[in-house]
Structures are given as C-alpha cells and as structure tokens.
Nucleic acid binder design. Sequence first.
DNA 1: CTCGTAGGCGTACGATGTACTCCTAAATCG
DNA 2: CGATTTAGGAGTACATCGTACGCCTACGAG
Lengths: 212, 212
Amino acid sequence: MSYAVKAMPRPRSLTDDQIAAAALALTDRAGLAALSMRTVAAELGMGTMSLYRYVTDREQLERLVVEFVLRDVDFAPPRDAPWTDQVSAVTNGIRDAVSAHPAVVPLFLTHRSTSAGVMRCGDVLLRVLAEAGFHGPDRVFAFRTLLAYLIGALTTEHLGPLSGPGTAALARLPGDDFPFLAETARVARSIGPDEEFRRGLTIVLAGLGASP
Amino acid sequence: MSYAVKAMPRPRSLTDDQIAAAALALTDRAGLAALSMRTVAAELGMGTMSLYRYVTDREQLERLVVEFVLRDVDFAPPRDAPWTDQVSAVTNGIRDAVSAHPAVVPLFLTHRSTSAGVMRCGDVLLRVLAEAGFHGPDRVFAFRTLLAYLIGALTTEHLGPLSGPGTAALARLPGDDFPFLAETARVARSIGPDEEFRRGLTIVLAGLGASP
DNA sequence: CTCGTAGGCGTACGATGTACTCCTAAATCG
DNA sequence: CGATTTAGGAGTACATCGTACGCCTACGAG
C-alpha cells in the first residue's frame, strides 16, 4: 500500500441530468410504457447494464426523472400578496411543470415521499400556510387537502381530461343508464384543463378560507 | 345443419364474481405486485391459460376487481338531508369501500373511466349536486373537484398515511433542510386516516358552499 | 350414442428487471 | 513514461410477466 492509494480512473461520463433528460425525452416521445432500462440505455447510446453504474434501480431512474421535472418549478411565491395568491402560485407552478410532461404523472404518485424535489414543494407550501395563520392540526389538514386536490387533479387530467375522448364517450351515452353523467359530460367537453384546474383550486381555497 | 344448432357443452365453471373474489383475496393477502394471470389462475386452481376463457385481458381482470369492490358501496344518500350531508355520504361510502382494500387503490385510477361501478358513483354524485342547485359548468367544476379530492386522498392515504412510516421519517429529519415539513410531520403523526379524510372533505364542501 | 362446441391447458415467444462476470480505459504515482 | 489500480462498459443468463397458438377432451343437445 505504499503507492497508488488514490487512483481515480475512468471518470463518470454521464451526469444525473443527462440520464434524466434522456429518460424524459424518451417518455415524452413514446409514453411511460416505453420507459425501461434497455430503452433508456439505448437512448444514451450505451449497453443496458452500463446504466446500472449510474443508477441502482429502475426506481432510482424514475426518481431522477421526477427530480428533473420538478427542478423547473419556480418557488418564489409573491411574498406580499394574499396567502391565497401565494398558494395558487406554488400550486400552479407545480402543476404547470408536471403537466408539461403528462406521461410521467404516475411517477409522481409512486415517488411522492422519496423525492427531494417533492419535499421541497411541500415545505414551501407549508411555509405559506404557516404565514397565513395555519397552525397545528389545522395546518396539517389544509396541507393534505391541497396535496390531495393537486394529486387528484393531475391524475384525472392525465388519464382523462374533460376535453378528451373519455368525456366525449360519456356524452354519447344513451341517457338512460347514467343520465346525469351524460348530460354533464356534454357541458364539460368545452372546458379546457387549465380552467378546470384553476376553478377547482379556487373552490378548495375558498374552503380553506372559510374555517380559520 | 339439421341438428345440433344449439349445442352448449361444458358450461362455464366460473362466475365473474368468483374470479374477482379470488383476485381480490390474493391482492389483499400478497399485495398488488403479486397479482398476475398466473397467480390468479393458481388461486382458482386452474392452469394459467384457462383464465383467458373468462377474461380477455389482464386489464379486464383488474376491471372485475374494481367492479367487485365497488359493489359494496351503499348508494342511498339520505334524500331529505342537506346536500352537503348527501355528498358526504356518497363520498365516504366510496372511500370506505375502496380503502378496505388498500392494495387495489391504484387499479381505481387506471380503470376510472372504463368501469360501470365507477360511472355509477359519478352519476349518483352528479344527481346530488344537481338537486343542490349546481347547473352547467358550475356542476362540472364541483364534480371534478370532489373527484380530484377523492382520488388524491385515496392515493395519498394508500401510499403514505399520516400515521405511517413516511410521516415518521419526515418528523425525524434534522430541522434544517425542510423545517416546516419536519415540524408539521410531528403534529401529523397522531392524526388518523379517517379524520384526515373527513376534515379534508369538509374543507372542499365549504368551498363548494361558498360559491353558488 | 354421436357430434360439435367450448373449456382446460402445455408450450412458446418477446419483453422486462437485474445478478454475475469479464474486459479494458484511464488517472495517479513511482 | 510506464506500471498499477480502480471503475466504467457490456455480454450473457435467469426469473417473471402477458399472452398467442394449438391440442385434447368433457359435456350437453340431437
């Protein structure tokens, strides 16, 4: 051990961001089902098993993608605006970043609790709520309600937006089986996803404002 | 063709319900990851490919499970109660049925738009909203917001209830990185999933009541 | 009893995640 | 400058998945 104690050969040729970008590009282009170790490795121009030098798991690969998408979120809620506007800013920022890549929405659900980016989102949101006067259990309920709405809205938007084919199929139903569903679907077809999300968020915020 | 026009040999030995019950039992016992064509067939005591006589797809298998779980929902909202109570009754009924089988929650997201049971839930909810005076786009927004909350709450509850290990891990964080998250997690540890769901629903209902 | 339908299932194929093992590129130190 | 050492790159292989295909046979109607 007299020499060569610190040999650091073959520097890593890939950064996490390069891997995440390749995986995200692939997913955007061919859908989440096309995301696999083999396809990502191919996208990076390397052998399948080489990818395992940079990533221990398929799960960690997915985490990289989640982190990568969330990095574009702007976390600077206007500090002197009403707290509802601040919550709106943060929530809309997250939603805009995520729904720019619809195919990866399911990954956010799976890795919700193990991603630093997701936790940063949560922390910012909780800070706004704390400054708005939410404390103790009330803050927990407010936070989880917002989170549930955000996750649910992203999910429904991803696998069946109002203006998409699912709603169209419902509207085409003969009115007998599910009359209200059919009628409402006809109204819903003309509503875009942005308006839907913002109106829903307004409803939740109104509910939050009613209690404290 | 003079005879044997109606030969119906070998009657089906399995009902949809039997298949769904077997798949559900398996999933409850061993988790959603253990649900596969082979395991369900084995649970039913038959060969793998025999299952395909009753089910065209893995997807249809999952739909059977969804339908089966939803059949236990009681759709009889108290007709002379305030509409908020009626919405609560329906929503809580769905949530109770689904969260009795936590492992299948992801299936509800995947098959949300292709299951008769799910559509029945939607129709009942829309009827209550219509009778409460919601019309046109307002009804759409109210419906989708409730749906988003329900789906989001089920999801978050499934893969990380407040009283679970995820929250505990957050509470153990050194306060430096995500101070609000850590502090809030400490408060949240003592909140049960039932209370969380009901309080969140109350918030959403308050928001719905504020607008019309 | 006969016959045709449809249930039961064994085999096989492509895709997936990943463990194991090898070869070799390259940075550091003598 | 060359030797040494460590880590990157990759081929092979295996278990598991969904499922297409085709064979055999149980069974009920005639």
